[in-house]
Amino acid sequence: MNIKNIGISFLILFGFWLLLNGTFSTPVIVTGLIVSLIIPMWFCARCDVFADMRLTPKAFFYTFIYLFVFGFELVKSNLDVTRRVISPKLPINPGIVKVKTKLKSKMARLILANSITLTPGTFTLAIEKKYLYVHWIDVQDKDVEAATKDIVQKFEKYLEVIYG
């Protein structure tokens, strides 16, 4: 359990270090290896952030699909917001709706909330256990179930596979 946490933190820190330096000379790699091994062992002795992550090939495959779906949604909804900003009548219909998520792990909920926030048109205002309160710039369904179908499900079906 803890090996997994330390391992994933180590990989992230080491990748960050290499990208920041931009070179692959020996001193840089050795320093990076040592420092990014010490930091997770020191600070991440009891953390459980990555504990629910699945490391199967299917999960990796779905991570890539998720990134593509997310990028597509990002571009699409940015175009939508652009249309709203430019048009002189300002066609907005804002409101706060309540949606429900099936995801159990904390990290998956965090990623879901961040994805909802980064696609313009919706952003997460508050999280209460399995309910998310979402501010929606163009409310189409006030009902919990229908709003869940519109906002959450396009991301949830992939995150369900990657996390438990």
């Binding site: 917001v81 900003v85 300002l90 313009p120 048109g121 952003f123 710039i137």
Partner: peptide
């Protein structure tokens, strides 16, 4: 252009 804080966050920060 947006009328309140929440809509400003919608268009402003994310765009």
């Amino acid at each position: 252009r947006m009328p309140d804080l929440y809509n400003r966050i919608q268009t402003g920060t994310k765009a």
